[in-house]
Write a protein that binds this DNA or RNA. Structure first.
Length: 105
DNA sequence: CGAGTGACCGCAA
DNA sequence: ATTGCGGCCACTC
């Protein structure tokens, strides 16, 4: 099977509905490697720029650090989709428990 | 081809 | 409570 982590991760991220978010650890766990959260981050950095990586947040609900264009851009995208983003200029966070989305649960 | 790095998470001291 | 380290896979230099 050619279903590498990267393919699975990209598939999941591409399936995240608008107004919903997922965590790196969650995506990694669904891909079969609960410890491969860093890989998800790596794929996000090297992977498809068309995928909604701005809907992917860390366990703390905080937005990623090296987003293309800056964290500010990511917050704008989330708010534009109806997601309530809290925090200040360098510390954005969302209600992960409220917006966390599961593909089959 | 070989080695290092990466947008993370969880546990231990 | 905080700090430090290990672990996973893929991609770039």
């Amino acid at each position: 099977m050619n279903d590498t982590l990267r393919i699975k991760v990209e598939s999941l991220v591409a399936t995240i509905p608008v107004g919903r978010v997922m965590t790196y650890g969650q995506i990694a766990a669904l891909c079969g490697s609960p410890r491969a959260a860093r890989i998800v981050g790596g794929i996000a950095h090297y992977g498809d720029p068309e995928l909604p990586w701005h809907r992917v947040v860390n366990k703390k609900g905080g937005l990623a650090s090296g987003y293309h264009g800056g964290r500010h851009t990511q917050k704008e995208h989330l708010e534009a989709e109806g997601v309530v983003v809290h925090g200040e200029a360098d510390s954005y966070w969302v209600d992960v428990e409220e917006l966390l989305w599961w593909p089959e649960k």
